[in-house]
Design a protein around this nucleic acid. Sequence first.
DNA 1: CATGAATGAGCTTTCATTCAT
DNA 2: TATGAATGAAAGCTCATTCAT
Lengths: 208, 208, 208, 208
Amino acid sequence: MVNDRKLNRAEQKAQRPIQILDAAFEEFIANGFATARVEDIAERIGVTKGTIYVYFPTKENLFAAMIAHVATPFEELLNNAGDLKGSCADRLEALLLLFYEKILNNRRTRELIRFVISEGPRFPHIVKKHHDELIDPLFMRVQALLDEGIEAGEFRDGPAALAPVVFAPVIARIMETLIRGDSPHVELDPYIRAHLDLVMNGLVIKGA
Amino acid sequence: MVNDRKLNRAEQKAQRPIQILDAAFEEFIANGFATARVEDIAERIGVTKGTIYVYFPTKENLFAAMIAHVATPFEELLNNAGDLKGSCADRLEALLLLFYEKILNNRRTRELIRFVISEGPRFPHIVKKHHDELIDPLFMRVQALLDEGIEAGEFRDGPAALAPVVFAPVIARIMETLIRGDSPHVELDPYIRAHLDLVMNGLVIKGA
Amino acid sequence: MVNDRKLNRAEQKAQRPIQILDAAFEEFIANGFATARVEDIAERIGVTKGTIYVYFPTKENLFAAMIAHVATPFEELLNNAGDLKGSCADRLEALLLLFYEKILNNRRTRELIRFVISEGPRFPHIVKKHHDELIDPLFMRVQALLDEGIEAGEFRDGPAALAPVVFAPVIARIMETLIRGDSPHVELDPYIRAHLDLVMNGLVIKGA
Amino acid sequence: MVNDRKLNRAEQKAQRPIQILDAAFEEFIANGFATARVEDIAERIGVTKGTIYVYFPTKENLFAAMIAHVATPFEELLNNAGDLKGSCADRLEALLLLFYEKILNNRRTRELIRFVISEGPRFPHIVKKHHDELIDPLFMRVQALLDEGIEAGEFRDGPAALAPVVFAPVIARIMETLIRGDSPHVELDPYIRAHLDLVMNGLVIKGA
DNA sequence: CATGAATGAGCTTTCATTCAT
DNA sequence: TATGAATGAAAGCTCATTCAT
């Protein structure tokens, strides 16, 4: 019991920075960097302003730490993307579906992209980090698969085999979600089906 | 010359609001709504803070007016989009090229989209207006062409014929431009070619 | 006709300062000196800010001129007060009634007193002027009549024969009107009757 | 001494709002609501602007709180007024003397009346409160005593028995004090004597 | 560690005043 | 004379940040 409580306290303290970062995430997406108030972040977890400054020296610093915090799951995503099996077309399809599930369908990743667009001009390192650690690896992953498919004679060797274009509908859907929230113009399932259908018909060599 | 001077007073007055809106556009995209300073907007056109308030009662009001100001060219765009000729495939291609030229390649339109994403949560009417007057008409225009192509037997009647998916690479490219500025990962020409290639191969019935 | 119009124009110009002072009076009583806006004063007479400054160099100056303007009728009041006839008691009664009619019942005089109280601390010369030209002469007038009545054996020679006390109900009624506006606690007629009754019973020697 | 220091923190915090209200009182009577500067209020107690806003959300709010603060002593006054003994005439005299002492002779009460007159048009709730809680109860108290005296055969049953008229010299004297400050036209003692003398001679039935 | 009173720089907004026309 | 665009000195208010407890 005593042990338990001690552990809890210690654990609770260890949790504090994470609580703060989570609260900061919510407050920053709701209000943007400039408009969000440190006091409101503190209030979300039932502490006072001063406490935030125990853990983070400035608001800017807190913002950067929050970005790093919510960007963490990417590594996992990129790792999972390596385990696919089957034909190149099957793997491309699986990869795109994985992106819909892990990027679009994940609030943190989605809102991270909003930060990149809205705060990017004022926080260039966020943009750089976002590309170096998320976008570029994703594109490379897709491009590698496209190249492999061409080599294997599965995909047409045309200009169409450009990762950013193949990937574009995922991006566009994220944007729509960021802008419209949860009342989309077109349901997600038909959207994904149309995306895959277009890519498969546009890329795959029919006779193959 | 004499004429120039004669018109000066009246003209300058008529120009002032436009000067302000243009300056506001620059300052707001550079700093966002909350961070932009009214004084800096004034300085850009060589007047003082007070002058801004002669024309716009509040900063928020100025922001909204600026949005309306930069959104004006849309009407022109949508009008131009009606004059296309040729097969459905040709017209779809022409339409997409027009979008690249008029939307992606137009700084105002591009940055307008950044505002929609970054300030949307705090200015919901901007989002609504943007959709009602820009996005929805564009999608409807594309969808109408897709439907016409299917009816005419030019396009496959598959799930792929979904306007947002066909249009997605334009959106994705805008996003990349917003984020990376003028140093793109992939050059624009090959990107466009890949987009059109994918769409044509994915949609058009080959034998036709 | 031509003559008529010319005269009108000239007259109209001569009227301008008076129009401004009247408008200033209204605006200053509605909002106080600090809160009243020069622009609103101008608007009341259908001109623009600049016009006010053609006639009055500063807002403060305008305020002082307005005070002098609305204080003008006092001279007339004090002159009228000299023409009374009859016994001292009759003349005291007539004098008090005259005050009710000319001071209480005159919006300009009433509001002038509000200015003395509310702006007095910031405009000491208004207070001085108000006393030298209005209050002191009035008190002296009343006191002279009281002294005359005592001399004549009409009034008791007691401490009660103090002008400010005899005059007090007029002042108190002005205050009530300033504060409550047009919905008095007690109607004016019974109030005046009570005032005169008290004074006559308190002052006049019954057997006389 | 030790005690002094121990209580310091908690006490100082508890005192802060009162310090602010007292400072606000001084600044507002010196300059009026519109002209008074929050920064000057802060300076009076050796803090900065921001501190005021820790305790009061707006200047207007501070003003209203200040009014409530200085109006507190009224309750005490009205309670004291109930303990009088003796004949109706004696009690009336005692009551009027009490008013001179507690209302005229109390700077807070006096200046409160200035606020009612000068800021009343912009703060109607102050006027209402002032009447409901101060003026009306006072008049009712006086009127009750007058009625009792008439019933008891001590006072004449004439129109003179009107509380506002009987009370008027107190009001008028307050006004004079507000306007002239500490250099009155007539000394207070003879003024009060004249007031009581007039009332007693005007009201009391001599033979009684 | 956590608090929260206090700070002060900085921003929006107002408005008396000026001046070229 | 009259205008009204422009000014700029305030003033109210906010909030990231500090620090004694």
